[in-house]
Amino acid sequence: MDLDKIGLYLGCLIPTEQYAYELALREVLPEFGLELVDIEGPACCGAPLRHINLSLTMYLSARNIALFEKEGLDILAPCPYCHQALSEAKDIMKKNPALKEKVNTYLKEEGLEYRGTNEHFHLLDLLHDEIGIEKIKESIKEPLEGLNIAAHYGCHLIRPNDIPRPDHSEDPQKLETLLKAIGAKSEYYNEKLDCCGAHIFINDQESALTKTGQKLEAVQKHGFDGMTTMCPWGQRMFDAKQDSAGQTVGASLSLPVIYYIQLLGLAMGKEQEKLGLHLNKSPVDKLGSKEED
């Protein structure tokens, strides 16, 4: 890996409520010799504003990239929603230089310039392609043997395929490979590519929770020991809102849902609290007992 430091761009959801993700990231990644750098000034990636005005999304993403570019940093965007917005902005400005120029006239007012010289990663490609499976395997002290974990990628992490995404849009396998690297297995399930419902939670909670509940129910029925995510939105729905989702679909749900980076930390022998495991609302302690069986 060429990277020894990377700019951390957390977006909105992770630093305002998905603290477990942030804790685990800060705890685990430095173990691979990667320094996470926080910088002044980033704002929302703009993705939530697509509904209102596509230009705003575009501008905010360009602005965030430019901020890190100014510091000479590549970006780690652990939220798929942010990562996709950054990828899209980059793609648009590559294809449309006139637009890039216009964006830069706005950026100038904040003393910024977008050139598009830095790269951005999601945790998925950072772990799988940059740090690499071998290094991850080497770091494992307590492999999670015997666990069958459902992989939830999150829609924006893999789609759409017309812009660069960290994995294949219809047959992503990197998360499964990462699970295997820490000793767990991960079977295919029909609902693997399905939505978590997060997006309409803001205006239609019942529909959102129905989606969440349906996917959780399917995963539970399949016999998985738990589910892992790499997305704060998916985690929020499947973990924090698991109880309400269960009530909405009339199912009794009791499925451990855990960030992959937390699982990795556990396999590396990290303390649970440092990985924010106490913040998961779903019964993640079940994973430990199952493992001992």
Binding site: H51, H156, N203
Partner: peptide
């Protein structure tokens, strides 16, 4: 139109 979950499957 305000209920799109942006799962992007339609585009994909």
């Amino acid at each position: 139109i305000w209920t799109c979950v942006t799962c992007l499957k339609c585009k994909e």
